[in-house]
Simulated scan of single mutants.
Amino acid sequence: MIWTLKIECEWGRYLEEECVRIFEIDEESSLYELHLIILKSVEFDNDHLFEFFTGRHFRNRKPLFSEDAWDFDYEKAIDNYHQMTLNEIYPLPKGLKLFYHFDFGDDWIFKITKSRKKPKSPDKDVEYPQLIESIGPAPEQYPAY
């Protein structure tokens, strides 16, 4: 089935304007694929560590694969991101949201919200994921200050 996801940049060292991207995406897409989709949609280089986590807001985080931040194994997490699909994540427990954290220095934080719209069957003439709406410019990953 095809879902609609809203991906909103909530925080980043150089975030100046609203940045929202809305995609139609296959529910079988992996978290790693979602990572690549987000980076492409904001024109960022894939040159930093990243993580997915849940929380009520981005400052209240609960890692997906480890309860203890000191027990975080990045290589194992990447393997898990390749294997875990969106339909394994959703529905999230009540009150929790999914977040994507890219570049642990500049701290780009994206909130990922699954639409309440009814999932639809894939259109054979459409290549998914498909960007269906873009609000605001992409933030500059490395502005020249």
Rank of each mutant, 00 (worst) to 15 (best):
N80R: 11
F23A: 05
D45K: 09
H82Q: 02
T113I: 14
T113P: 03
R21G: 02
E88R: 12
P129M: 07
M1P: 13
D47A: 09
E43F: 12
F50H: 12
R21M: 07
F110L: 00
L49T: 03
E67G: 04
D73G: 01
R59S: 15
W3I: 09
D73H: 09
W108A: 07
D26R: 09
K94C: 11
P122Y: 04
P143N: 08
H35G: 04
Y145R: 06
D47F: 06
K111R: 15
K124E: 14
N80W: 04
R13E: 13
I37G: 01
F52E: 02
Y32M: 04
Y142R: 10
V42P: 00
L86F: 08
V42M: 14
G12Q: 09
N46V: 04
E140I: 03
D125M: 09
W3R: 10
I25Y: 03
I37F: 06
R61K: 14
Q141Y: 01
P122M: 11
D71K: 07
E24G: 02
D45P: 04
K124A: 14
Y100W: 04
T113C: 04
Y32V: 04
N60I: 11
E24S: 09
E17T: 10
V126M: 01
A69E: 15
H35D: 09
I78F: 01
Y14D: 11
H48I: 05
N46E: 08
W3L: 15
E51G: 13
P91Q: 11
T4I: 15
Y145G: 06
P119M: 05
S41K: 00
Y14A: 01
P129Y: 06
K94P: 12
K62N: 11
A69M: 12
K120Q: 14
M84F: 10
